[in-house]
């Protein structure tokens, strides 16, 4: 391993420590915030935002994603897209149920319901 390489790694070490501290701070904020009442939606979104930031830090620096090669990005972009698709479309489908058909007093067509079955 050449010197330049070793120098790069040493520079990375400082970044790692910085990220480490940031992660700990993030955790503390999450816990602290859960004690403060920002409203139901407010608490959840803040917790989620911090969680996403933490995940980004881990993936970006600890897992070297910031300096990764193009094929990896391509794979992950598609994965992220399909993940969002899975979540968004499922939630959409679950919340979009058919509108209630209101009966307006008109008799249903004769063949639709055998009338004599109704007492």
């Amino acid at each position: 391993m050449d010197d330049k390489h070793a120098h790069d790694i040493k520079k990375h070490l400082k970044v790692y420590i910085g990220v480490f501290v940031a992660l700990l701070v993030g955790t503390i904020i999450t816990v602290a915030v859960s004690r403060v009442n920002l409203g139901h939606a407010g608490n959840i979104s803040l917790a989620l935002i911090i969680a996403v930031l933490k995940a980004a830090l881990v993936a970006g620096f600890f897992m070297h994603l910031v300096s990764e090669k193009k094929p990896i990005y391509t794979i992950l972009v598609f994965t992220a897209f399909f993940f969002v698709g899975l979540m968004a479309l499922t939630i959409w489908a679950m919340n979009d149920s058919p509108e209630q058909t209101t009966t307006t007093g008109q008799a249903p067509p004769a063949h639709a319901a055998p009338a004599h079955h109704v007492p």
Partner: peptide, 17 residues
């Protein structure tokens, strides 16, 4: 979180021989 930094450090130590 601590274990993730020790993991990265382990790898970096190998890089530094």
């Amino acid at each position: 979180i601590t274990s993730s930094i020790t993991m990265v450090m382990a790898w970096a130590s190998l890089k530094l021989n």
